[in-house]
Design a binder for these strands. Structure first.
Length: 419
RNA sequence: GGAGAGGUAGUCAAGUGGUCCAAGACACCGGUUUGCUAAACCGGCGAGGGGUUCACGCUCCUCCGCGAGUUCGAAUCUCGCCCUCUCCGCCA
């Protein structure tokens, strides 16, 4: 969430920047409630101070055997007023918190203002595959080979759940292993977190309260299924004050990801493009504020390294203000080209959330001994999501006879050169 | 799931209704002494919020797992919940 003090002190500038994300944003009601809140604080604290002094006087009189009955009556009345004002204050605070929870993060100045399609292509790497023969859609090809079976998966769980069989299962596990160990061997602490978590955790990541419809919920236990390990990893240091010397702290996790995709999807997202369950290797960093943007560049480079190692053609895209997730200040996507679809698809999203999540999760660091703790910056990046990678490999590495070349780096796990 | 014990500041830990405005120790920071290191001694040392100040600061409120309640007053009493440990049950 955004710092309330900043809203109070730099309202005009802040509001202008937020409107580039959502033109309907208006900070006036938050400002008014904050003024009311501070008035109440001043009143209630004066009364509490009086009450505390009075109560101490009661204690003294009782010890000294003096009469305190008149004072007690006054204090009882005082205490009632405190209770009433406290309730009013709580309400004002809650209204402010609720409003703040829905505001998006302030976009970084380098982020282009505009709609989804106004994205900026920062660079393009590699070449599209040789189109001397018609490339087949990954779904047709995989079903023909019997290595992807959505029909049987639907019997188990409904539509849009994948079932990998045989060489697809091997390839999927190989991708996970390859990416997980690659990052783990390059300075990211490996983590296998719980795959379910409570509402507080998803509030910190900012999936809640705004995007509740997008995630699965287990009613009986009041737990949510992980939609992205970002949500889990950001909670790793919740309510902690980290040592400046330990920053940046960087982690890599493997988790399955579950998404309801409540909005639905069209024909162009057949197959593995948009599914309720997919596997993802996620990178996450906790950094100091002044190093978070250099760390974002490093994060993007680490994600790119995977695509380069797999030999896939991709481009790097800077998202616009309207297209970013609520918590992000700046987001760069890696998009891989799928010749079967004739377009690029996101396989990684790397964001700097600055202090937005840190403030929600109370994640701080101490710049130097004795100095006041400050909020860290948090960054997340897929490194990468497997389902679309699988589609990318099936389409990009296709041979004329329908066989598929297994990328060199995955062969130790897959065990064969072609599928 | 059942029974019991517990949760206090960075760590350990005292505290069972009123100078608790949370003792003490360790760790950490500064200083004194000192061939060096160490030790000893002295001092400092939690967080959030409000007010005030150019600022250093001063001042008030809140926080003893979380949330309600009783009371003039709660770390302390009551209720609910969460977590940890031990034992039992179940189980990959």
């Amino acid at each position: 969430m955004i710092d309330l003090r900043l809203i109070r002190e730099q309202r005009a500038d802040l509001e202008a920047r937020l409107k580039t994300r959502d033109a309907s944003i208006d900070l006036s009601s938050i400002i008014e409630r904050d003024e009311r809140r501070r008035e109440l604080i001043a009143q209630v604290e004066t009364l509490k101070s009086e009450r505390n002094q009075g109560s101490q006087e009661v204690g003294r009189r009782k010890r000294d055997g003096e009469d305190a009955s008149e004072l007690l009556a006054q204090l009882a009345e005082l205490s009632d007023r405190v209770t009433a004002l406290d309730a009013e204050l709580r309400e004002a605070q809650q209204e402010i918190d609720d409003a703040l929870a829905l505001l998006p993060n302030v976009p970084h100045p380098s982020v282009p203002a505009g709609k989804k399609d106004d994205y900026v292509v920062l660079k393009t790497v590699g070449e599209r595959p040789d189109a001397s023969f018609p490339i087949r859609h990954h779904l047709e090809l995989a079903e023909e080979k019997g290595i992807l079976d959505f029909r049987r998966a639907a019997e188990l769980a409904g539509s849009r759940f994948p079932m990998y069989l045989g060489n697809a299962a091997r390839l999927e596990m190989a991708l996970i292993q390859f990416m997980f160990f690659r990052h783990a061997n390059r300075g990211y602490e490996p983590v296998l977190p719980p795959f379910l978590a409570n509402s507080k955790s998803f509030y910190v990541s900012s999936q809640l309260p705004k995007f509740e419809d997008d995630i699965y919920h287990c009613d009986r236990d009041d737990l949510y299924l992980n939609p992205t390990a970002e949500s889990l990893l950001v909670n790793l240091h919740r309510d902690e004050i980290l040592d400046a010397d330990d920053l940046p702290k960087q982690y890599v996790a493997y988790t399955p990801c579950f998404r309801r995709e409540a909005g639905g999807y069209g024909e162009e997202e057949r197959g593995l493009i948009r599914v309720h369950q997919f596997n993802k290797v996620e990178m996450f960093k906790f950094t100091t504020p002044d190093s978070s943007y250099p760390e974002l560049e490093a994060l993007i480079a680490d994600a790119e390294g995977v695509l380069e190692a797999l030999g896939l053609h991709y481009r790097v895209v800077l998202l616009t203000t309207e297209d970013m997730a609520q918590q992000a200040s700046k987001t760069v996507d890696l998009e891989v080209y799928l010749p079967g679809q004739g377009r690029y698809y996101e396989v990684s999203s790397c964001s700097n959330c600055e202090a937005f999540q840190a403030r929600r999760g109370n994640i701080r660091y101490r710049p130097a001994p004795k100095e006041k703790p400050l909020y860290v910056h948090t960054l997340n990046g897929s490194g990468l999501a497997t389902s679309r990678l699988m589609a990318a490999i099936l389409e990009n590495n296709q041979n004329k006879d329908g066989s598929v070349r297994v990328p060199e780096v995955l062969r130790p796990w897959v065990g064969v050169e072609t599928i």
